[in-house]
Amino acid sequence: MQPAATNHVPQSPPEVVLRMVSDFRYLAGAREMVAGTAKRFGFSHDSSSHLALAVDEALCNVIRHGYKQAPGNPIWVKIWPLEDDGQLGPGLCIVIEDEAEQIDPSAIQGRDLDDIRPGGLGVHIIRQVVDEAQYAAREEAGMRLTLVKRTNGPSAQRTRELTNRCAENTSCDGLPPSADASADHDRRTGA
């Protein structure tokens, strides 16, 4: 079940493989694993929480929409570390795979946020809190979601804007602030 080659999924075997069944009660453990791992790989507390949120929302969608809440169906969460690319820092690639009914990946869209109603927010949230979110049908069966997030990528910048916690000269992710990050901070503070 090696993911299809993309620009970001390493060709090496995943360093973590979590196999779980379609039961909402396992989501808390899955997101704690992801958040704890992200912190150890250099993400800030808030970025780690947002990455865990993306995985949580994705798993929720698999169980709710893919498996129609039928229990006992398999889901895999696979993690690869990503080396520093020299611009956006190191990161994590997380692939979520299932054996649920296949759908057209282009049909998976967040809803119009101007329509104020409960539900339908998960995909929008996922796309906001990671740098890349790519859905694909697996060759064998089911769907695959590939998530990429880097410690100084666009989504980490958004997290900083949203949580507004960066000190002036310190990146939230413990990295030297990029020019973009500094400019962003200046815009926020009016400095």
Partner: peptide, 29 residues
């Protein structure tokens, strides 16, 4: 919120931690 409006009751959220508030901002709520 929808139920409170139907019942003519006010509903106010308070003291959100940053990372919880950020979800409302992402959802533009």
């Amino acid at each position: 919120l929808q139920l409170s409006r139907k019942k003519d009751v006010g509903l106010v959220l308070c003291s959100l931690q940053d990372r919880v508030r950020s979800i409302f901002e992402i959802a533009r709520l």
